[in-house]
Amino acid sequence: MNFNGEELMLMMLYNSGTRLGLMQELRLMQCYLLPDETALRELSEGVIEKLKLISDADFDEVGFPLN
């Protein structure tokens, strides 16, 4: 799965170490978004959808830019 730069940055900011943990953190973050923060909501939804499609092993191979 290919993640773009914005997606990788968001993933890096909320990464808890596991694919499922990251998905949970992104969902939690969405609870705090204001109604006008649609771009961040859409970005996080896109990341969650992509994370659903990959395995935990594939997630472990994602190269985060600053790791």
Rank of each mutant, 00 (worst) to 15 (best):
36 D>Q: 08
35 P>D: 14
56 D>V: 05
7 E>I: 05
48 I>F: 04
34 L>C: 03
20 L>W: 02
17 G>R: 05
39 A>C: 10
14 Y>E: 03
49 E>V: 14
47 V>S: 03
22 L>D: 00
44 S>Q: 15
50 K>S: 08
45 E>D: 12
52 K>N: 12
3 F>N: 05
2 N>P: 06
7 E>N: 01
15 N>I: 04
63 G>F: 11
55 S>N: 02
67 N>I: 09
23 M>A: 04
39 A>P: 00
15 N>G: 10
34 L>V: 03
38 T>D: 10
19 R>P: 07
57 A>T: 01
12 M>D: 12
39 A>W: 12
18 T>G: 06
43 L>C: 08
33 L>Q: 11
21 G>P: 06
44 S>G: 03
33 L>Y: 09
57 A>R: 05
60 D>W: 01
46 G>S: 11
66 L>W: 11
26 L>Y: 05
5 G>R: 11
19 R>W: 12
21 G>W: 04
46 G>I: 09
21 G>L: 03
48 I>M: 10
6 E>D: 11
23 M>R: 06
23 M>I: 11
15 N>K: 07
2 N>L: 12
47 V>G: 06
2 N>V: 10
20 L>G: 03
23 M>P: 04
8 L>I: 10
22 L>P: 05
62 V>M: 01
7 E>R: 02
44 S>T: 13
1 M>S: 14
48 I>P: 08
54 I>R: 11
20 L>Q: 14
32 Y>P: 00
62 V>H: 06
24 Q>H: 01
42 E>W: 10
23 M>H: 02
16 S>W: 08
10 L>T: 11
39 A>F: 04
11 M>Q: 01
18 T>A: 00
17 G>A: 05
41 R>D: 09
48 I>V: 08
55 S>I: 08
14 Y>S: 00
64 F>L: 15
41 R>N: 12
45 E>M: 03
12 M>C: 00
50 K>P: 05
65 P>F: 06
44 S>D: 13
39 A>Y: 14
